[in-house]
Design a protein around this nucleic acid. Sequence first.
DNA 1: CGAGCGTTTGATCGGTGTCAAGGATCGTGG
DNA 2: CCACGATCCTTGACACCGATCAAACGCTCG
Lengths: 251, 251
Amino acid sequence: MQVTVQPERTLSPLVKKLQLWGPLDDAAQEAILALPHKVEELLPHKYIVREGDRPSYSCLLLEGFAFRHKVLVDGSRSINAIHMKGDMVDLQNSLLGTADHSVQTLTRVTAAFIPREAIRQIAFDVPAVGMAMWYDTLVDASIFREWIANIARRDAASRIAHLLCEFGLKLEAIELGDRLSYEMPMTQEQLADATGLTAVHVNRTLMDLENRGLIARAKKFVAISDWKRMEDVAGFTDGYLHLRDESSVLQ
Amino acid sequence: MQVTVQPERTLSPLVKKLQLWGPLDDAAQEAILALPHKVEELLPHKYIVREGDRPSYSCLLLEGFAFRHKVLVDGSRSINAIHMKGDMVDLQNSLLGTADHSVQTLTRVTAAFIPREAIRQIAFDVPAVGMAMWYDTLVDASIFREWIANIARRDAASRIAHLLCEFGLKLEAIELGDRLSYEMPMTQEQLADATGLTAVHVNRTLMDLENRGLIARAKKFVAISDWKRMEDVAGFTDGYLHLRDESSVLQ
DNA sequence: CGAGCGTTTGATCGGTGTCAAGGATCGTGG
DNA sequence: CCACGATCCTTGACACCGATCAAACGCTCG
């Protein structure tokens, strides 16, 4: 893969994402936009990183959706994160060295590949950027913790409702949609692997949520009829996403 | 709380822990040891941080064990990590600002409290330390991902066997024990909250593992009879702990 | 020695998994 | 634009793992 420096605004989704956690001054923004990178289009279901790889590039999503997952020895799959525009989809793998999980596209994706050495450099040359990226990985970890609680302690209806609330809020945060109505890019089997259920039970649970008047569905589109009731069913509170956290180190 | 600078080797467990991820030169080590901090003794079951707090100190474990957990709206509890000597137990909470989960002692604990501003400063003044701390939080995230898979896709016996393998390996990594035989500081109820089970079922499962000749138990002590068989039952592979990862950014 | 916590055991229930098959939708190529 | 195959969704019957409820037991530490 060839790396080219593109002085345009290609990487602006990253600037926007990192600014969710706190303002960045012009110098910091310019430094991000100036990162060397190479843009690629990827088809659905394509692997970005495979478990065991030693990626030397980090992948930034510019368009489309992707997910992280592990495959266990018995062949079952566990999805542990869904990613969207502006997410550094394998910062974790590329800095850690050997990938402990795979990353795969969900839809058609446009992605920028940035050399990991460039990430490391900008992190320390421009501390504000380094802190924002560190913060970003800490928020990812916070979401992992919430998923552990979701899968460990909630029943099927709550788990799925929770995932739908989270997805809507994340879309809204990056100004890509409305928490109350959006296109959900996952199949029921993928939802199952993200919630520790089976595809059959996800199907029944979605129909149940629909029958109870909590959601409406049409093709891949989901509409949440009553956000408050949905939050109640999900046991959802948005603190773990750390959107608008007034007391972070970044403020 | 009063902060005092102690030029001794009190913080050496942190140096040792961070060196799991790669060597640190003398200057970096000295900088860590010189961090301002205050040492405290804590009784078992005492809260170090509560969800919703805005901690301005990070807590480093010098002795004893602690765990992180969330309490859901229905009152159920989800434990998402166990911590031991050398772990920065609430780096995540203190940098994020508002704690999204609680941290509690498991046993009697000796801990050093370090101001978060000092953490932030050392991270950028001494990039090697900053990178090691970032790396450390990435390994935590990797462990969270494995726990998601553990709870989502393994049965009760595998989940518990997996937790026992992980605990033993972590003890061994910090030279505090032997993976094959150690004192497990958790009650069966805590094990249940860490594996998404109930205390009753943990009890039955432990007895089952014992009857199958996989483990032996006496009081709080656990002995793993056959590591290889235990790994098989657990579906355990140690890659996600990133001990001896030859291709990280730190090497 | 007693209280409290943690462990063990039994009986029963229920949520979710499994297996199997049919139906809908989508993407692709003719 | 239609045909066709593949993927995804839906439905039913049944099985089973782990939850629940209840009670007794045994440490351990004041």
